[in-house]
Design a protein around this nucleic acid. Sequence first.
DNA 1: CCTGAAATAAGAATTATTCCTATTTAATTA
DNA 2: TAATTAAATAGGAATAATTCTTATTTCAGG
Lengths: 155, 155
Amino acid sequence: MPLNSGQIDKRIRAFTKICRQSGVRATHQRREIFREVARTDEHPDAETIYKRVRKRMPTVSLDTIYRTLSLLEEKGLLKRLELFSGRTRFDANTQPHHHFICTQCGLVRDFTSEQMDALARPNEVRSWGEVRSVNVQLRGICSACRAKGRRARAK
Amino acid sequence: MPLNSGQIDKRIRAFTKICRQSGVRATHQRREIFREVARTDEHPDAETIYKRVRKRMPTVSLDTIYRTLSLLEEKGLLKRLELFSGRTRFDANTQPHHHFICTQCGLVRDFTSEQMDALARPNEVRSWGEVRSVNVQLRGICSACRAKGRRARAK
DNA sequence: CCTGAAATAAGAATTATTCCTATTTAATTA
DNA sequence: TAATTAAATAGGAATAATTCTTATTTCAGG
């Protein structure tokens, strides 16, 4: 479960590099927040990160946690684990199926794939627990958004 | 995009049957709410469903929408599209990878799989848009939760 | 060292969702 | 059919996660 320190250092270096390259300040707060996410593979939430960073920086604000996490995501240093931002959506299709999701407009389309349903569980996964369902998401840009994007760029 | 009416009817019949079998009342509200999700493949959120149902039942309350959606999920008539309930979590692993998720405790473990990274996009998907990433989630019960469950049941 | 832009802290505001309670509905019994 | 009772709903209050606002602080460049 623990990450090896070489990997963590590599992530920290990427943070430093990207801050420099994109002209954002690598402040003490940002560094601590990123370190807190980068040092673990437990995929913490904002509140957890807040509590941990506060141990070393008691005055850090929750808002800074959120702002920084958004910034880090924008810079590609970390990812949000969520299907959509905002509201939960519902699916009445109870057959096994998978989703194409447009990351721009939120369009979701269902599709089936025997290949995906039958994907082999890697050995390590078998040791972690019992898999009950396989869900594949293909994330990208739908045709409508791509067309809109082209038109917008052409203006 | 529109579902054929045969499929919709099939879903409505499943609703009726499951309500009867599990002894919950198939009230007017529940029927309308389920129909609203079942009649479309756009995977609507609670607010959208609320607005649509209100057109026919102006007095329906938002709380009934939420309560009913939870009930319908519990009965297996629909699914929530979300990775976790509640807080958004963050991942500092920027390499392509996939997730094992324990649906009980929320444990997330990363794993890599060339087979999964290379999954073929079904043809229909290609016509919907451009896929930029493939994400597989294996959802199930982790060993720790399974052990706890066994202990709890043994008591 | 000074100045201005960037970043932060603190708390208010917003948004999605859940909870509470009085009322209504509907199944069951008399 | 009327009375009884449990289930379900409406409406609004409460909560939880996240975002916004504003005054203050920090820091890089002149």
